[in-house]
Every structure is written in C-alpha cells, then in structure tokens.
Write a protein that binds this DNA or RNA. Structure first.
Length: 124
DNA sequence: GCACTGACGCGGG
DNA sequence: TCCCGCGCCAGTG
C-alpha cells in the first residue's frame, strides 16, 4: 500500500468517527492497517490531504490532548466544536484535553474487520 | 542521498 | 501522572 492509498483509507476512517466521540492518530493509523503511521495521519489532516468533510476536530493524541488545535482558524475552535457535540474539554497547563475513557471511539473487532474488508473491496 | 521536521506513541524512571 | 528518550515514517529542501 502506498501513501496515496493510506490517505484514502484515513479519509474513510476519519469520516466514520462518530459524532460526540474522539479518536487518536495512532488509532486511525491502526484501523488503516499501518499502526506505525500515526504521524502521517497528523500530517494529512494538517495539509488537507484527506479532502473535505473530515471531522478533524475529533482527532486528538493518545493522551487526549488537542495537539492539532493550533491548525484551526481560532485557537479554541477545535475545543468549541467538540463541546458542541457534548464532549467535555478540560483546560490544563499543557493544553486542552478530553477524557478518552469517556469520549473515546472504542472500536469493536467487527469494526476493524469491516474497514479491512471495505478497503479490500475498493482495492485500496 | 542526507539531514531535519513534526496534529505521534510507547516504555522506563 | 509527568517527563524523557527513542523509534517511527512521509515530506521537504
């Protein structure tokens, strides 16, 4: 799988993040079949490589920090978008943070298999 | 090819 | 829990 296909997969996975939930870069990379490519997920979102209609505000780091907040139009836009979906965002010394135990997108085995088969069918 | 970068993640202390 | 160091990998000049 090349990087182009990886970005196509990432776009599909990101669009599947449920309303009111948050997913980590590594989690998305894993669902795309490349667990070591978490950094590429951040790169793709930052550079708009995943196309339009991507709920980028639902992507945070593994500890729940909104590490991509600076890339939004306003400093607190990502925070407000999450709160508008009912996701509590805590303000800490080290930045905004969400509790992934409570608001994380906890994937089931069926979900992971679904994506794998979907990518297989689409040849990506 | 080389060095450096970064919306990252993990394990150890 | 926090803080580091290290590994990771595509992109960039």
């Amino acid at each position: 799988m090349g990087t182009f296909d990886f970005y196509r997969r990432a776009a599909i996975v990101c669009r599947a993040i449920p309303w009111g939930r948050a997913a980590s870069y590594g989690q998305i990379a894993l669902l795309c079949g490349k667990p070591d490519n978490s950094r590429q997920v951040g790169y793709a979102l930052n550079r708009g490589r995943l196309g339009v209609g991507i709920p980028a505000h639902r992507v945070v780091n593994a500890k729940g920090y909104l590490t991509g907040a600076a890339a939004f139009a306003a400093g607190d836009l990502q925070k407000r978008l999450l709160e508008a979906e009912g996701v509590e965002v805590e303000e800490t010394e080290r930045g905004f943070r969400v509790n992934l135990k409570k608001y994380g997108w906890h994937n089931t085995m069926e979900e992971a298999i679904h994506f794998r088969e979907l990518f297989e069918r689409q040849g990506i």
